[in-house]
Design a protein around this nucleic acid. Structure first.
Lengths: 200, 200
DNA sequence: GTCTATACGCCGATAGAC
DNA sequence: GTCTATCGGCGTATAGAC
């Protein structure tokens, strides 16, 4: 039925609005400083009770948000791996994605890099065990096996490579670095890559 | 009076016990997941009300903790700068301190690296503006001026250098890297230093 | 399926006995 | 200066009218 699907879509829309509002508030003030009332007010649903028609409870909003973000990243990385064969190119594109997200969707990156997710989602798997980051480790592992990367294992390659990238982005997100993320990208990439690249 | 000073000391001791208990709980479960009751129970004062004889409120416990940690770091860095003239040596010692603290006082490092302090101490200055970290930036700045470090400015030198160091330590603290921090120190130092060292 | 009203619990904080 | 008792408020969550 048309009416049915339209209603479904409307409901989906409200759900997304709640998630968007929650993402904004969580990353601005933190999970525990954000009440359901505020989330409701900032989204289409004007009252806290209405939120419960869409989510079981507050934690599930955060959980859905987390799943959405991690999934989105995972899909993007799949895409990058499909388009690029060599791991250095894959890495370069992941870095580009990270920096673009920081400028275009800072809340998403704040959620990942600034918030301490395990504090309000204790049962969720840590970020490093999510599909997206497992795939990143695979990219690094591929580079090691192909002889492009010198690190001993992918975990440590991650630490030094993404340490630089993510610390830079974190400083941008918290305002310590004042320019847009993109401004720092080439520099950060160069240093990060040189740190793990096998110098032939 | 002897009795007076003894009482003072006793009070100081209780205060420290409260702080120690709070540090442990905050870094384990997060600030908002920790109640004053738990802090009291875990310290000498067995009841929540007793805590208020030593601290104005919950936030002030966190505030005192933060000040204590930042101060301790600042003193250590002063000491390092006194003992070493050249910035590469100073940096090497700061890295050593960071790694040793991670193994010997993980709660302290968790407080700094894992917790999102501004979430529960919104009025406090961010870590990067604390004396300890300003001094670190000065060390980096000294290195740049002396021609040892190639980075354009100390902020960005911080991002890449401490990005590697702190990301490695964070992975150790969250259990993603399974060995003791010390195990990774030399590797992390080498890569981090090479990233900012001027290759003559 | 949305809003009003309300219940319930938890925790931060205070007052007062000893 | 410490423990007992208790208040007050906020915020999550539900129930019930429309």
């Amino acid at each position: 039925m048309d009416k049915e699907t339209q209603k479904e879509q409307e409901k989906e829309k409200v759900r997304d609005e709640i998630l968007a509002a929650a993402l904004k508030l969580f990353t601005e003030k933190g999970y525990f400083n954000t009440s359901l009332g505020e989330i409701a007010e900032a989204s289409g649903v004007k009252t806290a009770a209405g939120v419960y028609k869409h989510f079981k409870n507050k934690q599930e909003i955060a959980s859905a948000l987390y799943a959405w973000i991690v999934d989105r990243l995972s899909v993007s990385i799949d895409d990058i791996r499909r388009r690029n064969r060599k791991s250095p190119e894959q890495l370069r594109e992941i870095v580009d994605l990270w920096f673009r997200l920081t400028d275009d969707a800072p809340e998403v990156m704040r959620f990942i890099l600034v918030l301490n997710v395990s504090e309000f989602l204790p049962d969720e798997k840590p970020l490093m065990e999510s599909p997206a980051f497992i795939k990143i480790l695979r990219v690094l592992h591929g580079g090691i096996k192909a002889g492009d990367i010198k690190a001993v294992d992918s975990q440590r390659a991650y630490c030094s490579f993404f340490g630089i990238i993510e610390n830079t982005l974190k400083q941008v997100l918290t305002g310590t670095l004042t320019k847009k993320a993109d401004y720092y990208q080439n520099d950060a990439w160069s240093i990060a890559w040189d740190g793990i690249a096998k110098d032939s």
